[in-house]
Design a protein around this nucleic acid. Structure first.
Length: 232
DNA sequence: CGCGAGATTGGCT
DNA sequence: GCCAATCTCGCGC
């Protein structure tokens, strides 16, 4: 079933007219708030980049907030270093961090120098799906559904070809990136849990996901009964 | 199908 | 060396 959907989504190679022309782009002010607030509000927003004329991306369905203080799991907890400098940059800046031979992408929040950010953990793939499959080194036959593409922070970076070269980029100012308001996800459709894969500050409920969306990583997204794409 | 060990790479001690 | 905001595969129930 998803084969047909993937094909349809990508009929023109992802290079079709952007279908979000009339939508509302996120502004710098959006990110100049506490990371947990931004993490919640990013759910349902569109996130995409253009590579060689092809837009790749989708709807944000899972995020985690990393705080500027009292958060031992945050990369900013031990102060600013060359490797994490972008996390202390202006709000909306990308902070891209390599881990386990993969990458994770964050959006910086609050004002310059705070060191807080929101990790994008999963997208519902929408634009340039054939291109994402290429980036992942898969064939469409290997992809029974889109979860292999953009579920999980490492996989979504791979699909969008995000690596350290995208660190410090401002996706709001850069014409080859796009962040915009999509579906407003009502509060009662958002679940907050503890964050995944960290060893410190585990207890803080700073992971947010769209309830029931199957592109959410971990148990919450994969084997949940109502298996629907709960976004546009 | 759920769980745990191993893989793999860059950055920091 | 060692560790990490991960992912994948293989094994066991």
């Amino acid at each position: 079933m998803n084969d047909a959907k993937l094909k349809q989504d990508d009929e023109d190679g992802g290079d079709r007219q952007r279908d979000w022309e009339s939508t509302e782009s996120l502004q710098s002010k959006f990110f100049d708030r506490r990371p947990a607030v931004v993490a919640r509000q990013l759910l349902g927003c569109g996130f995409a980049r253009r590579i060689e004329g092809v837009w790749v991306g989708g709807w944000i369905v899972e995020t985690e907030a990393y705080l500027s203080s009292r958060d031992a799991a945050s990369h900013s907890a031990r102060g600013e270093k060359p490797g994490n400098a972008s996390m202390f940059g202006r709000p909306s800046t990308l902070y891209v961090y390599p881990i386990h031979a993969k990458h994770c992408v964050n959006l910086v929040t609050e004002s310059i120098g705070r060191g807080s950010a929101v990790l994008i953990r999963a997208l519902q793939p929408v634009w340039g799906i054939e291109r994402m499959i290429e980036h992942r080194g898969l064939s469409s036959l290997d992809v029974s559904d889109g979860r292999m593409l953009t579920t999980g922070p490492g996989r979504l970076c791979h699909s969008l070809a995000i690596d350290r070269r995208s660190d410090r980029v401002d996706p709001i100012a850069d014409p080859n990136w796009c962040l915009f308001v999509g579906a407003k996800v009502p509060r009662n459709r958002i679940t907050a849990t503890s964050r995944i894969g960290i060893s410190q500050s585990k207890e803080l409920p700073l992971r947010f996901f769209v309830d029931g969306n199957r592109y959410v990583s971990g148990l919450a997204g994969q084997h949940r009964r109502p298996r629907r794409d709960s976004l546009p």
